[in-house]
Amino acid sequence: MTNLLEVRNIAKSFGQNEVLKDVSFHVPPGSIVGFIGDNGAGKSTTFKAVLGLISRDSGTVEIFGEDNLNKNATIKEDIGVVFDAINLPVSLTIKQLNKVFKSLFNSWDEADFYRLIRSFSLPEDKKIHTFSRGMSMKLSLAVALSHRAKLLLLDEATGGLDPSSREQILDELKAFVSDSNSGILLSSHIISDVEKIASHLVVIKNGEVLLNEEKEKVFREYAIAVMNEEQLNLLPEDIVVAKRTYDKSIRVLVSDKHQLPDRTLTEPMSMEELSVLLTRSER
């Protein structure tokens, strides 16, 4: 089955500043791809490049097998987007917003929209600018989930939410992909969210993808080895994903723990440690 989103070798520079370098990854149907990286790593720029909000220097972006988002706007019927801020016209009320989106989306599901609005306890008659950040993000998600989209692009969508609201939203997202035809690209600083729901991991640093793998495979096959410089030099280069030097040792993320020499010291790997090692790595 065609990937919902296929990003191949995209590059983008702003003047001398190379923001994206040969970025490739994909979102298969039924998956939630956790997109992890520090501030300024290139996550939001990737989202913008995918959505055609900025031009690309090179590379291709295929959504549902087509690379012409700016030419064929109807493709966007099947995409739901949430950025890291509200981004909706804030002087409108939810009722007015419903009327606007009803006119914009052929597949707008008013009943589902109001179901989500009520489930998120959002006031229908108040202007959006009176909402807290958490309420605004819930509203943005309700919009993205109310037009039978097949692909959700969520850029820091769970930021600013209290734990209980986050839990509620993660449940909605899990339900969204349960039909195995839909998929989500979810960037988040909150590693626990990614850990809970992601099926694939993409880690980006300085505009470069360091890891692009199924989460299950990462925890099955990968390992964090603790070694010295000499031991590191003996490792096959193709299994070294990232390394970070500490005072007396080097922590190395390897993609195949079975290729590690016997008696190599390894550390238990959590999502948090994996993310920190990758985003702080020297390679």
Binding site: L53, A73, I75, K76, V81, L88, L104, F105
Partner: peptide
Amino acid sequence: KYVLTLPVS
């Protein structure tokens, strides 16, 4: 910015 993610050109 957001409006360009909606089904409009």
